[in-house]
Write a protein that binds this DNA or RNA. Structure first.
Lengths: 150, 150
DNA sequence: GGCGAAATCACCCCGATGGGTGACGACGGC
DNA sequence: GCCGTCGTCACCCATCGGGGTGATTTCGCC
């Protein structure tokens, strides 16, 4: 909000200086006030629209960043995060085991720890909570950028 | 885009009429051009910002409309949609039965039909597909407006 | 070398879940 | 009246999923 006001003030000052630079008094007498004021108004409206668009567009284009703060506060390990991602695919434990190249029993262990740390019971709730904590992207989120740690 | 231009033109015309109504020539002479033009400019910039905000904020805030076309092409019945909604909550069959006021066996029947129609197997996949078809809102979607048949 | 965390796997138990079949009442359309 | 759909419920059965315990290996760290 304060940023908005600041930028607005700066833009206004710039506009005034620009008008001064254009010797607006001369032009106002030359072409007449009836034409000059609408011209200035048009320019200011365009400037305002640009400002408004500029200031309000920022939220929609976030490409999903994993909430690492929540990651470590929960103490999620690498492997638990792996099974979380496999969980989202709708895999059964057996399919997850194949995907991760481990035994189904191992998958079960990781899932149990995952439920424990997320304080949920059941796959659906786990996915729901993981999305709420932004550990994994929600439907419609843009593709996540590649990250060095995987 | 055309709507933008139209609204812009209308707003500009309104501004001109407003200035006319205020007898701007009188005021321009009265308080001086150096003050009058910035005042008009300020007003126009505010108007422009309002327009810009107004015009750009509507695409991201679509309040989720259920895809009724998919609903009927799948042939989902009322009750099947009910269990779908309960499914999203992460309920077990027993909890769903309590929520809907029917027997767990009935819930199982509806769920089986639901899986059949959605061509999935398992709760997670069902929710995923339902979201993809926009039968139910995704995480982060605004609350759905009340619907007479909903 | 010792320690702890992480990862792996096995086993048990039992309730939950998915798949299938059959049945009954209600309701609307022909 | 007959038929199809919907909603409801019951039963069987096989598998899956969640909870718990215990064990081993691997790895980094002190």
């Amino acid at each position: 909000m304060w940023r908005t006001i600041l930028i607005f003030a700066v833009a206004l000052a710039l506009a005034v200086f620009a008008l001064e630079w254009l010797e607006y008094r001369f032009w106002a007498r030359r072409i007449g006030l009836e034409l000059f004021v609408p011209i200035v108004g048009t320019g200011c409206i365009v400037l305002g629209i640009w400002l408004g668009v500029r200031l309000t567009r920022q939220a929609p284009a976030q490409p999903f960043e994993r909430n690492d703060r929540a990651m470590e506060s929960l103490g999620l390990t690498r492997r638990e995060y792996d099974v979380l991602q496999a969980l989202v695919m709708g895999d059964g434990n057996k399919a997850m085991a194949r995907r991760l190249g481990v035994s189904p029993n191992t998958v079960k262990t990781h899932i149990a720890r995952l439920y424990d740390k997320l304080e949920v019971s059941g796959r659906v709730q786990a996915i729901e909570k993981a999305r709420a904590l932004r550990l994994i992207p929600s439907r419609g989120d843009p593709a996540s950028p590649p990250r060095p740690d995987g």
